[in-house]
Design a protein around this nucleic acid. Structure first.
Lengths: 327, 327
DNA sequence: AGAAACAATGTAAACGTTTTCGTTATGTTT
DNA sequence: AAACATAACGAAAACGTTTACATTGTTTCT
């Protein structure tokens, strides 16, 4: 049915081996014949059968990525980067959504490992031993999580947090509240770490609350607890929680940023659109996705056992939810 | 390296043919030997090589989906559905993001067609002839777009629009503005269609403006034009535009819904979170994704040439941006 | 000029399955 | 009991590539 390498060979009056070479290692054939082959291939609209190629080379030309929730713009951001970079390198990408469930996550990872040359894992949930096991089966790159011996694309959350603290302290804040996200998440740990050193260096008071679910409702809930501590600024684990905080503050008639400053984290689309627009930290989502692909491909091609873990910079985006504290 | 069907055959003391049968058509082997094979397979951790299988069966076990923008929650919603349903059927899904570009869209579609058993196309942009061509190469299911001879999973936008109009008219509105999205998009056409018949039936005045870019900025821009027409309700093409409208109204000191009612379309997450929470229409995103997969698989397995185009119902979600018009 | 190296191409094996066909054992009908 | 259908299994071909090896013709070296 489909046009095969044999058809091209016949058309170009050469053997199938020559066709194969002309396409995958062009310098092995004479320019004249190469052109003949290429023309024939183009004319017939030949596309190599990837399954057949994969069968013999052991390479599938596929990449996998497993994410906890496709509805979370954070992950679609990196997915977009992954997707774009993979396409440039002529790879296709499988995507799997684990629905935040650790068991399915592991299952998906395992299933995917058979079909791809490498997997990008964005899952805060799945545990270390599972990951090491997967890393044995196929190439693995971690996203936003550091694990010994496994390459990783990291976004410097700690640095983002310190930028927030620097900003708030410069405005004159001296008593800050941080609303924790999930305790187990690497991101939350990193953010706390950045937070601790920054507040200690500046000698300002830090009150930690939570953990809270990293969602709108979590923000609503956390807000009242935060206010009880009477801070001048509230730092949420992420934008969605911050949105909850803003909503609750408005309900209670507390004016942002005049009476209390609020910050988020992630710079999701609506951070710029809510009111007042949210001061937050922008994550290099697409760059991280592209980096992850590069790391994966490096590992595959170079065959070097060098394990690279690369940090990408985050950036504070100052909008309208932060101002000097009330006098 | 990996464990192959031969290893299982040796372990179970049968031929490779029997192993293959025991796994893919269990009723062809005696229960006793089947158990032996299954045990051996389980013990060795055997996983069939999909490339090899695909080579001979002509089936890849893969599905593709091409979307214009992964950052758009609309598409990730259906993607989530696709993904979930595909996993149940033991299919993997390739995802491709065209970045709203028609040329890449076509290119992606073409590239994907070779590697999958079927493709789900969510692209409003790509033109009919391209689609028909793709439908010749591989199985195609359209999402939210009707095309003769091509199966489709459709969300009934027209019905959603009529629900909005019914709602507004019931509240007492008599002069409505609709802010058009992209003229070429099937969704916009459908929404207008529903709008027209509903307003005519009720005998209320309808003013159409635009087209506007279906984005936040589009809403900002459209808002002032809309107000000039002095309607009592503004219906936006989608939630994001509606958000822009709300922002602009607030800036101009116009109170929603007391002075003017506003509606969106899509029920994205922030529609519930913005303030005031947006009255909008919920789309059955995940169901549509799952339906699309079902249609695809039906087409593959049944081999029937019956072309199904299924409509899914949308639902009006009344929140706080609609109320009776000012007296 | 003969040998040796090399460049360009062809032949055929290999990758891991599924499936056709043939063979043997097991019932079932006359 | 002979003939025949049927069930269970094995041998081998096939899928479309890549690649190791063989072959040929051409250049380079001595």
């Amino acid at each position: 049915m489909a046009v095969t390498i044999r058809d091209v060979a016949r058309e170009a009056q050469v053997s199938v081996a020559t066709v194969s070479r002309a396409l995958s290692s062009p310098d092995l054939v004479r320019p004249a014949t190469r052109d003949r082959v290429l023309n024939a291939a183009a004319q017939l609209g030949y596309q190599p059968n990837r399954a057949a190629r994969g069968l013999i080379t052991g390479r599938t030309g596929n990449l996998g990525i497993v994410v906890p929730d496709l509805n979370n713009p954070f992950f679609t951001g990196v997915l977009k980067g992954v997707q774009a970079r993979a396409r440039q390198a002529d790879y296709s990408v499988f995507v799997a959504d684990s629905d935040e469930d650790r068991a399915t996550e592991e299952q998906l990872l395992r299933a995917m490992a058979k079909q791809v040359d490498g997997v990008i894992v964005c899952s805060p949930g799945i545990d270390d031993t599972q990951l090491y096991e997967a890393a044995g089966t196929t190439s693995v790159v971690m996203l936003n999580r550091r694990l010994r011996g496994v390459p990783a694309a990291l976004m410097n959350s700690a640095s983002g947090m310190r930028q927030i603290v620097d900003h708030l302290v410069a405005l004159g804040h001296r008593k800050l509240v941080y609303l924790n996200g999930p305790r187990t998440s690497w991101s939350n740990k990193e953010r706390r770490r950045g937070l601790r050193v920054a507040t200690q260096q500046h000698g300002v008071e830090l009150i930690e609350l939570g953990p809270f679910p990293p969602r709108y409702e979590g923000g609503l809930q956390a807000c009242d607890l935060a206010l009880a501590a009477e801070p001048t600024a509230i730092m949420a684990y992420n934008d969605i929680m911050a949105l909850g905080v803003l909503a609750r503050l408005r309900d209670r008639g507390i004016v942002v940023p005049d009476e209390v400053s609020v910050t988020g984290f992630d710079d999701l689309m609506f951070a710029a659109l809510c009111s007042p627009p949210l001061t937050t930290v922008a994550m290099p989502l697409m760059p991280a996705g592209m980096l992850a692909v590069d790391l994966l491909l490096d590992g595959l091609n170079a065959g070097t056992t060098e394990v690279r873990q690369v940090d990408l910079d985050t950036q504070l985006i100052v909008r309208a939810t932060t101002s000097p504290p009330p006098a």
